[in-house]
Design a protein around this nucleic acid. Structure first.
Lengths: 233, 233
DNA sequence: GTCTATAGCTTGATAGAC
DNA sequence: GTCTATCAAGCTATAGAC
């Protein structure tokens, strides 16, 4: 099969990317079903028929949007994680260091990568919490990197039961993807004191917050749930 | 204006509730745009025209779905929070107690309230992370109860800077609503060791995890960000 | 590679019979 | 209260001109 010509100034490749950009933006705002092929084409200043030409259909365009940045992102993240481990002393990086290595590339791309990355993460935030796409899509693109990260955490918390690590990651994941969504909820709630666009604020706090949570759950005895369950609740 | 007759066996009220149930289930699965009025009517075994008759239109039906349980839920939550404060010693409830009082009614309704409640929370999970509805809808229904909860936390952590409390709540909120979504992601990631339907597991861990996070951020000096920002990151 | 034109459905909403 | 019938609009997808 012929290799695709990805030179961005090739006429077709440019159009293809423009469609991806438009789709990324609109899917992030209103989800898969909230956007029409026509709206995407209008946003991209292209013809609706080109969606079929380049991607096959709407669903395939959606997949292409997700795939485009996932590869680059996972590459950045694995490098960041390895650097973190390399720079740590012989006892390895701390929980907080590992979490920062996990979240920082995402928050950094969202903040400094331009509007495309911002939309991409907002889309990830929606998909993660969707019963329809949540498990399949996220596992497909991100399970390998997450498991790599879990390995590192296992070394930093050698006494932590496995389940506690997975539940801790679950909580981390929820906190992180709500941040991506940048809905403005925290702005309204705090009457402007906190702004959901202020990713630097999250970057400063999330590793500390989540690190403390990991440590707390890691301190649980493995069989704590076999002890007499108290009446309360 | 005439008061609505809400006796559930009145012919019309029964139909209305059936439509709400069907809409709740389908909206939770595929979001607002992923569901058609016809699909809802089919699920409810009712006529599509009745959506307009009872609610005015699709959007109003969506709002009615959200409103229906929000009122009862907030009532349960305020009672639970007040009980928690009443039962605490003179120094007031701990952070963990307050967080348990905040999350327990939700996890309890999702687990023991039947499929309607389960769908409701899954829908909340999606809406929370949606740029389109996230701020407006959630603030409308839940800001008062959250602010009441924040008040209690402020007493438990008197030295905590306000921003730290709001960001901590943001992280809690993210962890909680991802739990509601029950996407099965943690099941795949942990190869079955953890199940996203196991809300008891979350109920046991979330207050500890989040409590530790609150305490960690509360310990930050208010002006920690005015100190020399290190080169790294 | 891009566009026009259009096929073939489905959509949300409503008018009006019962 | 419920249903049938139907509307205008919008949908995805595609065949084929350029």
């Amino acid at each position: 099969m012929a290799t695709a010509d990805l030179r961005p100034n090739r006429r077709g490749e440019r159009t293809r990317q423009t469609l991806l950009d438009a789709a990324e933006k609109l899917f992030a705002e209103k989800g898969f079903y909230g956007v029409t092929v026509r709206a995407i084409a209008r946003e991209a200043d292209a013809d609706p028929a080109l969606v079929a030409y380049y991607f096959g259909g709407k669903r395939e365009l959606f997949d292409a949007v997700l795939l485009r940045r996932a590869e680059r992102l996972n590459q950045i993240r694995i490098e960041r994680l390895e650097a973190c481990e390399r720079e740590a002393g012989p006892e390895g990086p701390s929980v907080e260091d590992i979490i920062a290595a996990f979240t920082e590339p995402l928050l950094d791309r969202s903040e400094n990568g331009g509007p495309g990355w911002k939309s991409y993460f907002a889309l990830i935030g929606q998909i993660t919490n969707s019963p329809e796409w949540g498990a399949a899509v996220m596992s497909k693109y991100f399970d390998p990197i997450v498991l790599r990260f879990m390995e590192s955490l296992r070394r930093a918390l050698p006494d932590a039961p496995e389940e506690e690590l997975f539940w801790s990651y679950h909580f981390l994941s929820g906190a992180l993807v709500l941040t991506f969504a940048e809905t403005g909820r925290v702005d309204a709630l705090s009457k402007g004191l906190c702004r959901s666009t202020d990713l630097a604020a999250v970057h400063k706090r999330l590793p500390l917050f989540v690190g403390a949570g990991f440590r707390r759950l890691a301190a649980e005895r493995p069989n704590a749930d076999t002890q007499d369950p108290e009446a309360a609740e």
